[in-house]
């Protein structure tokens, strides 16, 4: 499951960030999931929750994970047309290939207006961490946000 390896990456990145920021506890993790990568939310969320316990230890045990979907919007570099990935139709193998590596969308998607394969992905490529919240020091208990 590709979802599992991406979840591993998210947990590793959160631990890195928590260490950098000196957080004792991470309380919330906001993960943005771009539409182009077509992650299965349930599988991804399950993997994140499993892995936070396995790798995160006490620092992540109470962390709430929030997933936010982001539409994939593409813009043609040739004619400037913008369109949504959700509005186009591909075959199953093509969707699967893009799931594995979103950049291969350039092999299967053409601008609906001018047929150019030269487009930018404006939003919604893949998985990113929008922010994490955590606390420093047990007496303090105040939450801070780390983009």
């Amino acid at each position: 499951m590709h979802e599992w390896s991406m979840a591993e990456a998210v947990i590793a990145a959160v631990i890195d960030e928590a260490e950098r920021e000196g957080l004792d506890k991470v309380t919330e993790i906001m993960v943005r999931v771009g539409g182009l990568q077509q992650m299965e939310n349930e599988v991804f969320e399950f993997a994140l929750n499993e892995l936070k316990g396995a790798y995160g230890g006490s620092i992540l045990e109470d962390a709430r994970i929030i997933l936010e979907r982001e539409d994939a919007v593409l813009r043609c570099r040739f004619c400037g047309n913008e369109w949504k990935f959700s509005g186009i139709r591909l075959c199953e193998d093509e969707y699967e290939a893009i799931h594995f590596c979103p950049e291969v969308s350039h092999a299967y998607i053409r601008c609906p207006s001018c047929k150019s394969p030269d487009f930018d992905l404006l939003t919604g490529r893949g998985v990113s961490i929008a922010w994490i919240k955590g606390v420093k020091g047990e007496e303090d208990g105040s939450e801070s946000e780390h983009p």
Partner: peptide
């Protein structure tokens, strides 16, 4: 934040 970089050493 792009989480992928954090997993490279483990991979």
């Amino acid at each position: 934040m792009d989480p992928r970089v954090s997993i490279l050493d483990r991979r």
